[in-house]
Design a protein around this nucleic acid. Sequence first.
DNA 1: CGACATTTTGAGTCAGCTCAATCAGTGTGG
DNA 2: CCACACTGATTGAGCTGACTCAAAATGTCG
Lengths: 249, 249
Amino acid sequence: MDKQHYLERLVLKLETHVPLPSAEREQLLELPLTLKRLEANHDIVREGELTKQCCLVAEGLVCRYKIVGDGARQILSLHLPGDIPDIHSLLIERMDHSLGTLTPAVVGLIPHEAVRTLTRASYRISEAFWRETLIEAAIYREWMVGIGRRAAPSRIAHLFCEFITKMTAIGLSDGVTCDLPLTQLEIADALGLSTVHMNKKLREIREAKLIRIRANRLTVLDWKGLCSLAEFDPDYLHLQPGAAKIESD
Amino acid sequence: MDKQHYLERLVLKLETHVPLPSAEREQLLELPLTLKRLEANHDIVREGELTKQCCLVAEGLVCRYKIVGDGARQILSLHLPGDIPDIHSLLIERMDHSLGTLTPAVVGLIPHEAVRTLTRASYRISEAFWRETLIEAAIYREWMVGIGRRAAPSRIAHLFCEFITKMTAIGLSDGVTCDLPLTQLEIADALGLSTVHMNKKLREIREAKLIRIRANRLTVLDWKGLCSLAEFDPDYLHLQPGAAKIESD
DNA sequence: CGACATTTTGAGTCAGCTCAATCAGTGTGG
DNA sequence: CCACACTGATTGAGCTGACTCAAAATGTCG
């Protein structure tokens, strides 16, 4: 509801690595934001479109995806509140992929001009945004390794590790349990798997007592075991050096 | 040999989208560059290292890669002369992957401080670098789609389309033929395939008379056919709007 | 010519796929 | 409260693209 609150989440994220002087922080908090409430599975921007604004995820879960010739979808990234998944459109206006909601969501649209004014006036702000896009690229790399070189169970476990780590970092999880508003089809589309195979391997992970999933809620029963199956090492997320790491037991 | 020449290639690339004022161009051309000649298959930076400099590819072919637990390698990107593959280390010093040569190469090391001075003084320069990293992210996305959702022949064709398009963009190919200094093992590692399977599917593409490969040289025999197999649409490379596109026939 | 890297081929196996039901949960209208 | 519709999860039964292992053939280069 509260624009200020949503922008604060953005600032918090941007300050993960380097704190901003209060003048810069103020400017960010004054960014013009047009809030929009969206249904689940609603496209925010589509491949090919030219954009003059970018979108801050305020509530809900948003994903980036592409559809290939035979209709298969590859989900390329997941975006939690505080993210501006299309901040890149500031410099590359034509979208080479689509952005859509996975759950009912609230997004805040911000005109490029407003952001550009800030990034051009302050290298600290522009570096903070730039850094965010670099971390996203690091996540792409990790996903690529997973899709290209890891077996299905490992990939699935990796997604859970990453998801709960990111949720914990923004205060939406205690590191043990969190909402997981994804269908198995969506997880499969993110991992380059079929639903059926996903389902079978997911059951194995459940039966190995690594996690529990009930009513869109993920609970980690054995963090160490899950990380080990996933070969999960959170370094690539480049969270704050002193950030609360998820501890096992 | 000529530092000036290598930096000019960098500037040319940075100016692909927005031309730089001559003052900025001059500053870039005066960046301090320590040239280093490297063997093939030599690591430039390794995962986990902290860096105080970044590396301009001057000659040769460089790749980014990660090794997973069972020893498999995923090649994450290929870098041609004019690239600074680790420009991201300006803002994220710890490497979450390795960078190595695929051929004998010459790289020019540039201290972060020198680049930072320029990016902080000129938003045009910082935007140019930022944009390069965004285009690289777009390439990651396309690779992810390929690895996750395309069959082997299509993936292989896609790599050739992308490679020759990028080589053409920097003047190292006429759009029909170019050096391809990659072993089948390396191509397989970039595509998330095994060498054996790669080899068999590659033969099919050759037998379909789409390409010819001889002595590390790739020749496209049927550009339209190759693009169609690959579902290749060069938009994601975000080449200059007016850039010379490869035409069929 | 030898030594080594790379490519090619064959044979057998398996992870992951498709197709086709079935089952469970959640609404919705009557 | 029940019947129906719909979405998502689950299961079973093949099928096949891609993998591994192993060996042979072909380059390449000092």
